[in-house]
Design a protein around this nucleic acid. Structure first.
Length: 688
DNA sequence: AGGGCTAGGCTTTTT
DNA sequence: GCCTAGCCCT
């Protein structure tokens, strides 16, 4: 039928082919690191469409990151000729949920123009709600926030939480949860967790809605399945139901987000819920040398497994894994920096072929200094994100208020930014009035009854603000929404406000630039670029967004990180092991293989060393050709010099493939005795 | 309304 | 030892 797709499938290895061709029932693909799982997913999508005659509109592929979704979309569309890929859904869980909510607003009891709260907005609301009860304790707010998040992830409603609460703490959290949900609803707002919670609840409670979406989505593919939480699993199960038409791909050994609610046990659960489940293991690795895989396999064998898996490759044996023992953290970074400098020449490699991985972002600081000293170009991933900048939060609040006047959170953030002399006392009176009448702050600001409570001056200023926002809104509706938004920032002279608050003019200018970047991004997502239009026939891309949808997608960080990606200059990559998942580099350094750091102290104390081991496993399996592990004997932590113990993970690696350096010198004999086998291995390697 | 001081806490953070 | 957040003071 389709020669092209037949050829593509034929190029896959037997296991991969099996995974692509198996469509008669539920399918679990256990895909080891570097085993070509993305090829399997993308080929399977093309296979379903081209070979099985399934309409692209009936298929949904779900990932966890925007980046993964984008890459997958690209790869699929390159396999699909003409318009055959039209209507295919490739998105994150959250974007899928957002789209469901947008389509089901009425049934969910929301009005159009709803706001999406990011975790910071949610925290602000919680702070507000909890402020009344006890004295605010940032720590307690965070705790309640995570309890609520866990409840939502487990599809526990406020009522259920309340009735199941055992401790006073739980009861209090449940009480806050109830108020929180009520307020979100009043603000016509949803939070990140709601993007899964609301659709899943809707499908559980409303047959009609469920039937509609079951018709719409007939086959699902889920990437990184080990990272799904309960609600995401429920959502998939509800949608696919008895039809059992899904493929999930995952690797329990790469589950490193359990602390965030991911349930790797969903992999096992799947076998219980779907007895017909076909389990296919992908064990051939196309990335790393045999020695690197040997290290990875041996390490992870220390974890319990439901499904055993051993990676192998035909990439050659490769070099031994080096372990650099350094005097302290300063020497460690020095060592890494100078190594990269010399090895780049020796191996005639590019800067970008090197990656330095670490457990915590703080470890990057010293390294940065060293790299700067040697003038090594580097790219640091992570750090303060674009969206946590104040000017961006302000701008987002303006956008949200324009779309959703009921968004009190947004109103509060910007009603007096820039300064409009609308102070706390005015706001308090307004808030009282609004809550008595059960209307939003914005709506209340325009009401007549206010003149009883507010001074004439205060009233004027409020009215002026509302007229201003209304005016912008009107211009948005009439014509070019983006130009209305641009002139809004100009008219209120937001830049002048930034200048007042900045330490230097350049800082303010930079911040204003950030705001314009945000607006540009918004514009871009509204009208697809020429390039996108050109490839869009055959391509997936969705409906043209309206401003409202575009703003939501902005909150989901969809559009922004595209920019960062485009920056593909030749630089050494610095990233946490968490951030490294899914990536690969010819030469990898992992720093800080010490007890209390990797595995992290808190993990040791809370008994979650297994996840730390998986984290190390993820780090190791990023390496294609060479792997170097470093550790310090001493390290400054919490302002104090601490003696470090080498990580237990080093002991778990096969000693014969490790080359130790710098370990001979006067190690105290008792320690040597304690550390037994690996110490002897170290000595042996020195003798060789 | 804004700035400075003090106390606490200190992993990871796909959306 | 350093950073951040929140509170208090001017």
């Amino acid at each position: 039928m389709d020669a092209d797709i037949k050829q593509r499938v034929a190029k896959l290895n037997p296991r991969q082919q099996e995974a692509v061709r198996y469509i008669d029932g539920p399918c679990l693909v256990l895909a080891g690191a570097g085993s070509g799982k993305t090829s399997v997913i993308t080929t399977k999508i093309a296979y379903l469409i081209r070979e099985c005659g399934m309409s692209a509109r009936r298929i949904a592929a779900v990932t966890f990151t925007n980046k993964a979704a984008r890459e997958m979309k690209e790869r699929v569309s390159s396999m699909l000729p003409g318009r055959s890929g039209y209507g295919l859904t490739v998105s994150t869980f959250h974007t899928l949920g957002l789209n469901i909510i947008r389509a089901e607003l009425k049934r969910l009891g929301y009005r159009s123009g709803f706001s999406l709260f990011d975790p910071e907005d949610a925290k602000a609301l919680l702070r507000d709600l909890m402020h009344k009860d006890a004295q605010v304790d940032a720590d307690q707010i965070s705790r309640v926030q995570s309890i609520i998040s866990n409840w939502k992830n487990d599809l526990v409603s406020p009522g259920q939480a309340l009735s199941h609460a055992e401790t006073d703490d739980d009861a209090y959290a449940a009480h806050v949860y109830e108020a929180y949900v009520r307020h979100l609803k009043a603000y016509n707002a949803v939070d990140f967790d709601d993007l899964i919670y609301l659709p899943a609840k809707l499908f559980e409670e409303n047959e009609e809605a469920l039937a509609h979406w079951r018709k719409r989505i007939q086959y699902m593919l889920v990437d990184e399945y080990q990272d799904t939480n309960s609600s995401q699993y429920r959502l998939v199960r509800l949608l696919m139901g008895e039809r059992e038409t899904f493929t999930v791909v995952g690797d329990d050994d790469q589950s490193i987000y359990a602390w965030r609610g991911a349930r790797p046990e969903n992999l096992v659960q799947l076998g219980e819920d779907f007895p017909r489940l076909k389990v296919i293991k992908l064990e051939q690795n196309y990335r790393s040398t045999a020695l690197i895989l040997n290290a990875a396999n041996t390490l992870i064998a220390n974890n319990p497994h439901v499904y055993e898996k051993t990676l192998w490759s035909q990439m050659g044996e490769g070099e031994n894994i080096r372990v650099l023992v350094c005097r302290n953290e300063e020497a460690e970074t020095e060592r890494v920096a100078s190594e990269i400098l010399t090895r780049r020449i020796k191996l005639s490699a590019k800067w970008r072929d090197f990656a330095v991985l670490y457990r915590g972002n703080f470890q990057a600081r010293l390294l940065e200094l060293k790299l700067q000293h040697y003038q090594i170009p580097y790219k640091l991933s992570g750090g303060t994100s674009f969206f946590s900048r104040n000017e961006i939060k302000d701008a987002m609040a303006y956008l949200r208020l324009l779309i959703n006047p009921a968004d009190d959170n947004a109103f509060l953030r910007i009603v007096n930014v820039p300064r409009r002399e609308i102070g706390p006392s005015t706001i308090e009176k307004l808030a009282n009035y609004a809550s008595e009448r059960g209307v939003s702050l914005f709506a209340a600001s325009g009401e007549f009854g206010l003149n009883q409570i507010l001074s004439e001056k205060a009233l004027k200023r409020l009215e002026w603000f509302c007229r201003f926002i209304d005016g912008v809104r009107r211009r948005m509706d009439q014509g070019n929404a983006i130009s209305a938004i641009r002139s809004m920032f100009q008219e209120m002279d937001y830049e002048a406000w930034l200048h007042q608050n900045a330490s230097a003019p350049v800082v303010a200018e930079k911040r204003m630039q950030n705001v314009w970047t945000l607006v540009d991004q918004l514009e871009k997502s509204l009208k697809p670029s020429d390039e996108e239009v050109a490839q869009s026939d055959g391509d997936i891309t969705a409906e043209t967004d309206d401003v409202e949808a575009a703003i939501s997608r902005l909150v989901l960080r969809d559009i922004l990180d595209q920019q960062a990606e485009e920056d593909d200059t030749d630089r050494v990559q610095l990233l946490t092991m968490h951030a490294s998942k899914g990536l690969e580099y010819p030469h990898v350094y992992i720093m800080g293989l010490e007890e209390d750091l990797l595995p992290h102290r808190n993990a040791i104390e809370s008994g979650t060393v297994e996840e730390e081991r998986r984290l190390a496993y993820v780090g190791i399996t990023r390496a294609r050709r060479t792997l170097t592990l470093t550790l310090a004997k001493q390290r400054k932590a919490f302002g104090e010099m601490m003696e470090c113990t080498p990580s237990r993970f080093l002991d778990e690696l096969p000693e014969e493939i490790l080359d130790w350096e710098g370990r001979a010198d006067k190690e105290d004999p008792e320690k040597k005795f304690e550390r037994g086998a690996s110490a002897i291995a170290g000595l042996r390697s020195l003798l060789n």
